[in-house]
Amino acid sequence: MAPSVPEALKKKRQAYQAALAKRALAQQNAKKANTLKRRALIKRAASYAKEYAAEEKLNIARARQAKKNGNVYVPAEPKLAFVIRIRGINQVSPRVKKILQLLRLRQIGNSTFVKLNKATIMMLNIAQACSLMDPCDLGLDTVRELIYKRGHGKVNGQRIPLKENAVVEGSLGEVGLQSVEDLIHEIYTVGPNFKRANNFLWPFKLSTPVGGYRRVTNHFVEGGDFGNREDKINNLVRKMN
Rank of each mutant, 00 (worst) to 15 (best):
C136I: 10
C136A: 13
N117A: 11
A119Y: 15
M133R: 04
L132R: 06
L124S: 08
S131C: 15
N110T: 08
N110F: 00
D134Q: 04
M133P: 03
S131W: 00
K115D: 03
D137G: 06
M123V: 02
N117F: 04
M122A: 15
C130Y: 05
D134V: 02
C136D: 05
N110H: 12
A127F: 06
P135Y: 01
D137F: 12
A129P: 07
L116I: 09
S131D: 00
K118W: 09
D137S: 11
N110P: 02
C130W: 02
I126H: 09
A127W: 06
N125P: 07
N125G: 15
I126L: 11
V114I: 15
L138N: 02
D137P: 01
K115M: 08
M122L: 15
N110L: 02
K118C: 11
Q128W: 08
K115C: 04
A129H: 09
M133A: 03
M122V: 14
V114R: 04
Q128Y: 02
M122R: 15
I121E: 15
G139W: 07
S131L: 06
A127D: 08
T120L: 14
L116R: 02
N117Y: 10
P135E: 04
A119F: 13
I121W: 13
C136S: 12
C136F: 11
I126F: 02
F113R: 09
F113P: 00
D134I: 03
K118R: 13
D137W: 12
A119M: 12
L138R: 04
K115R: 14
A127K: 08
N125E: 13
M122F: 13
S111Y: 02
D137A: 14
F113A: 03
D134L: 00
I121R: 15
N110D: 11
N125M: 12
N125S: 12
T112Y: 00
M133I: 04
M123L: 06
N125Q: 15
I121Y: 13
T120I: 13
L116P: 03
C130F: 00
V114W: 03
F113E: 06
